[in-house]
Design a binder for these strands. Sequence first.
DNA 1: ATTGCCGTCTGAAACGATTTAGCTTATCTT
DNA 2: AAGATAAGCTAAATCGTTTCAGACGGCAAT
Lengths: 351, 351
Amino acid sequence: MPRKKVSIKEIASAAGVSSALVSMVLNGKAKQYGIGEEATQRVLRIAREMNYQPNIMARGLRSGRSHLIGLVVADIANPFFAKLAREIEKQASEHGYTVIYGSSDDNSRRMNSFMQTLVNQGVDGIIAIPCEDTIKIAAELQEQKFPLVLVDRDYTDMKISSVLLDNEQAGRQITEYLINAGYRQISFVAYSGDLSHIQGRMSGYLQAMQAHGLTETVHRLDKSDSQESIRQILSAIRQGSEPTDALIFANNTLTIEGLYMIREAGLQVPDDVAVFGFDGGNAFDLFTPPVSYVCQPITEMGREAFSLLIKQLEASDPQPAEKVVLQSSFVYTDSSRARIQPTNPSTKKTI
Amino acid sequence: MPRKKVSIKEIASAAGVSSALVSMVLNGKAKQYGIGEEATQRVLRIAREMNYQPNIMARGLRSGRSHLIGLVVADIANPFFAKLAREIEKQASEHGYTVIYGSSDDNSRRMNSFMQTLVNQGVDGIIAIPCEDTIKIAAELQEQKFPLVLVDRDYTDMKISSVLLDNEQAGRQITEYLINAGYRQISFVAYSGDLSHIQGRMSGYLQAMQAHGLTETVHRLDKSDSQESIRQILSAIRQGSEPTDALIFANNTLTIEGLYMIREAGLQVPDDVAVFGFDGGNAFDLFTPPVSYVCQPITEMGREAFSLLIKQLEASDPQPAEKVVLQSSFVYTDSSRARIQPTNPSTKKTI
DNA sequence: ATTGCCGTCTGAAACGATTTAGCTTATCTT
DNA sequence: AAGATAAGCTAAATCGTTTCAGACGGCAAT
């Protein structure tokens, strides 16, 4: 197996031409540079025979492009991001790019330093799930016309290419759904912090509740002791001290945590309390009963993100920032099935 | 924000020294090359002021090292691999390396081409979850002394550094456990193919069954229609046409599939059939009842894999291949609780 | 005073690919 | 036949770093 590093020079001398010619031919620019047919074929054949593989470093140094793109997610072990990463990786490899990735844990310091590392590594562009303070470094990169696409979260004052979900709409829709299904005391549970997607979901929830003249209840949990907080909420529900007939968990991990606690508390879903979550997953399906959830179009998000990025990468002039907003779909299951006796049938309406 | 690309040359002229000296200082080799204290400090200060960032491509071209490592997993969307990736990424970044990753889908063609891409990208080493035919390309790389570590699966005839689990032991142990818990008709369910870790688990199962004089039943499912196959197995169990009181699913995804089907079939666990799986996950915990599983030391695997790789990377002389075998732990839950009336109490013994 | 040797530092080559400017020939024009 | 044009190719510069082989001044030993 010939895997000795073959350089363009060796091919050149084997073919009896200059290394410049070899480079041109191998880059498919033979016609463009007016290289003769015979020489072209000879070089091509020899390169194949010698199993030539271009040296990325040399090429990158010369051309200033690495064909590497950076991907920063909150946590690759979160299925949502893993699937997103999968799709982006697929797109990238189809377009001749390779992906470098890292997890930020939604920690802005880690995020910053990783972004910095990526830029130093010479990536051509970055796709990132921003966290609250990413805005600074993102703005900086944006200013320097560094190709950048943000996914899943939005910080409205910035003109940065992004792929987003209509979280407000999703929040509104599932709340409406629960109301129509006869639930009245619907609580919204989220981690504290102001990640934009959570804000959007919450705002949709609030709108729907207000539109129906219902009292909103929002629980913001500190990530560090969310488990204990959920336990308290559930125990309040159980004792009836906080009348609640449905819970909306604002994201995937929180929903999962919630399910653990619900089981621990021995609550029946949806009889004691209905549950609606985000993002789905096996755990949702295999819970008893299966859990209703907002289903984000992950594949499409990945595709859009990459397409936005490559638009910037391949364009010679700076492209205008573009925000793509996608709609979610919904999976309605028994965890949010219609109440047998709606609390107040008269307010039940279809929107 | 100064982000104009500052080169070593500009620092050199700003400091009034040669670029060679700057390079030496910036690489911490000042002492080694006997650079004066004063010059060293001046260069360091100026480099900081100008926010110098080395050009990775140039460095890589010159030194032949990219500080990139490749990671090939079967599927990053599988939590097991995601967690592994997470740990490896962490280790890598702590050691100044960056990770490029890709999913192979256990498809050897894809795997091959991705490995090839990685090598072309100039990664310094590769950590891979091999699939059945990876052995060829792995052997090839190994022969060229290319730093390579294989994880999770083994192909015994090769002398390649690997991190493995004692799958045979795990298979044996959970089978023994089920036998002790009073189960007698224990079936082993796996995808077809001969991935070594599956073989190991199966062989452990067979050993334990034989040791107790019990009849082994192994189902090998074609990945393409595993769902249908499981459905048939379960329906046989239900109708009693195939006497089975416990199922061991040989890996994570298969266990999940199994759980879906068990729920669909309306079987009660463990009364109708006990269940034992691999790798765990939220879905296991939230199933009713929670599912017993073999818990692989993922973090440790990642750490070991990276440590094996870096040993090869930083050593000047080729290192001998090394196989690290780790032990699993076990989570025993109600899905495999002791039968109320063991089929044959007299054979119950503690191993 | 010459030699030898430190301690400090520099020049220049090298890594491999790309690209520009320009050099040969051969062919065409007039 | 002389000059212009084109076709086909090459030399050499370039990207930013690293590193090896010295250079240079000064000091001690001879």
